[in-house]
Design a protein around this nucleic acid. Structure first.
Length: 550
RNA sequence: GGCCCGUUGGUCAAGCGGUCAAGACGGCGGCCUCUCACGCCGCAAACAGGAGUUCGAUUCUCCUACGGGUCACCA
């Protein structure tokens, strides 16, 4: 005569352990007060969404800020979605953002930590142990319904206006005796394992979400699948056993999971496990046609984490932007701690907003400009070269030809308390510094504004007194000195008071020189530029300019 | 449709019964200034709507509207 124990033995012949033994094998961690053990648990699809980076960062910050542990767990229970090399790619991409794990699979293979395996496909026996115990207690049972049958009852339920799913009249396998179940199994029928939900329609569950506060919803009354036909667990079941066995004490995940929290709480209870603590993170949104939606992998290029690297945003800038979305006091902190690493920011899960933020590329640019402005010329040079090396070969050629010169470019107007902020991503540097590498300027803009004669006179006069040894003050004084003879006013204010008395003012003189030397109307400190270019180059450029004006 | 979550300026957001409703990005104006930046100063700009509770609601309750999420042998 079959019973739940013989049924369990038939279903899990190679499982001899028990949940209690597993709990002993993965004992509670020695943690200091308030330390959070968090995890990032992606499926290895090979695509890293910026929203995932956000969630991963939040979990990482929460762990680090509390002196806890951060775990990577690979959820590869859906073989259809798996991509070759996806795990390595994921680890590397996250590392590129400065997000690293204490435990889990490692770059280059292998894994670290005492609570593994960290890949779900390697944890089969663990799930089966818990599942076997459930079957023995009559809390789980095999279900032989075909997908067609399921679809049929779903349609019927919907027609009747009742909640679709495996419950009530439609949970046919739930009512099988152990005898019937065994007979079906022995006949070779494929089956899934479902939990025997104790829930009732209309029942309520309450739980506290760290981000959203108290939430109350209808309890689960569906006989949810624990193990799929292939013996691998569903997300729900895997989550429950993994997070308790890994001793995760703060589950941080996307808010799309909040609807299934009642399932998880119920499973935990049925397994005799303590409820987990949850924090559901809102997704990053995108505005389109006046309405919001999640950033879409298909429609939005900025949904891909790789987009930002390609565009040349420093990874620190992306993280700081994300951090400012997560904890709005981040920007105030940054203002007070100019030079500190974002890693020392006292991150707080509780300060997260419950509503989803719109992705704001303009704000990212502002943050990025600040991040780059804080860098030294050397750091800028290194970053720009590294970026150009893979994304802009010709730029790389220019930048790397003479690194001291390149660093000199980035040193102009850098450092000090008011650094320039006009580079917001490495993709900007090509435009930013092109005139340092080429002197093929079109001077028509110059003559259009001042007339060829004036330009020629100004440049000739300047060439006569040009002294490359001048410091910035002498350099500018020299320019002022040629104003008078040329009919320009050396003092801007004076000129503005009586504009008719002069052809223009010093600004116009230096504008002409600037244009001859750089081909631009606007540049950083011209004296510094000329000093870097050197006497020969500067003279050459001005002489060529004069020649082109004839 | 059921259940759940959300809604403060264009955007991110402080606020947690009494505030002239912070700050940041962006916008606009000004100052500084050889240009452009930077910096500084200033301006415009918000509590989705309606009922309650209260001496008093952005804050508490309910309803409505709108937005989002979820209802798989996917995560």
């Amino acid at each position: 005569m079959a019973d739940n124990f013989s049924l369990a033995a038939l279903m899990f012949p190679d499982i001899s352990s028990t949940p209690d033994k597993l709990l002993e094998a993965y004992p509670p961690r020695a943690l200091k007060e308030g330390a959070l053990v968090t995890r990032f648990a992606p499926s290895p699809t090979g695509f890293l969404h910026i929203g995932n980076v956000f969630t991963a960062m939040v979990a990482e910050r929460a762990a680090r800020a509390s002196g806890g542990t951060y775990i990577l767990r690979i959820e590869d229970t859906d073989k259809k979605r798996e991509v070759e090399g996806g795990v390595q790619l994921l680890i590397q991409s996250l590392a590129g953002f400065g997000i690293v794990f204490d435990e889990g699979p490692m770059d280059g293979g292998g894994e670290r930590g005492d609570y593994g395996p960290y890949t779900q496909s390697g944890r089969r026996a663990l799930y089966h142990t818990f599942c076997r115990a459930l079957v023995e207690k009559g809390l789980a049972y095999p279900c032989f319904c075909t997908e067609e049958a399921l679809a049929g009852s779903r349609a019927a339920q919907e027609e009747q206006g009742m909640t679709p799913g495996y419950w009530g009249e439609h949970a046919v396998c739930r009512r099988f005796s152990p005898d019937e179940a065994e007979r079906h199994i022995k006949s070779g029928m494929p089956y899934v394992v479902r939990m025997r939900s104790p829930g009732k329609p209309g029942g309520r569950v309450k739980f506290r979400d760290v981000i959203r506060g108290d939430i109350e919803m209808e309890e689960n009354f569906l006989d949810v699948v624990l193990l799929k036909k292939d013996g691998l667990p569903t997300y729900h079941f895997a989550h429950v056993v993994d997070d308790t066995l890994m001793r995760v004490n703060q589950v941080i995940r996307g808010d799309e999971w909040i609807a299934s929290a009642p399932i998880h709480l119920q499973m935990l209870w049925m397994c005799g496990l303590k409820p987990l603590k949850y924090a559901h993170v809102s997704p990053i949104m995108k505005e389109e046609d006046g309405s919001r939606r999640k950033l879409s992998k298909r429609k939005d290029p900025e949904a891909a984490a790789t987009y930002f690297e390609q565009q040349g945003y420093p990874s620190d800038a992306v993280i700081e932007y994300l951090l400012s979305i997560a904890n709005s006091n981040y920007e105030d902190w940054r203002k007070q701690n100019r030079e500190a690493s974002w890693a020392s920011f006292p991150f707080s899960l509780g300060k997260m907003s419950a509503s989803g933020a719109l992705f704001d590329i303009v704000k990212l640019q502002s943050v990025s400009g600040d991040v780059i402005a804080r860098m030294t010329a050397r750091q800028v040079t290194e970053h720009a070269c590294r970026w150009a090396q893979t994304y802009d070969a010709s730029l790389y050629g220019r930048l790397s030809a003479d690194l001291a010169f390149t660093q000199g470019i980035f040193a102009i107007d850098r450092g000090g308390s008011k650094p320039r902020k006009d580079i917001t991503r490495w993709g900007d540097v090509g435009d930013y510094c092109d005139y340092f590498f080429s002197s093929a300027f079109d001077t028509s803009g110059l003559t259009a504004q001042y007339g060829a004669d004036v330009c020629r006179d100004v440049l000739s006069a300047y060439l006569d007194i040009y002294n490359p040894a001048d410091g910035k003050d002498e350099w500018f004084a020299a320019i002022k000195n040629i104003c008078g003879p040329l009919g320009f006013c050396p003092d801007v204010k004076q000129y503005k008071a009586e504009p008719d008395k002069h052809k223009g003012h010093v600004g116009d003189i230096s504008a002409i020189i600037r244009f001859a030397v750089t081909g631009r109307k606007n540049t950083p400190d011209l004296h510094a530029i000329m000093a870097l270019l050197g006497e020969n180059e500067c003279r050459g450029r001005m002489e060529r300019c004069i020649a082109s004006l004839r």
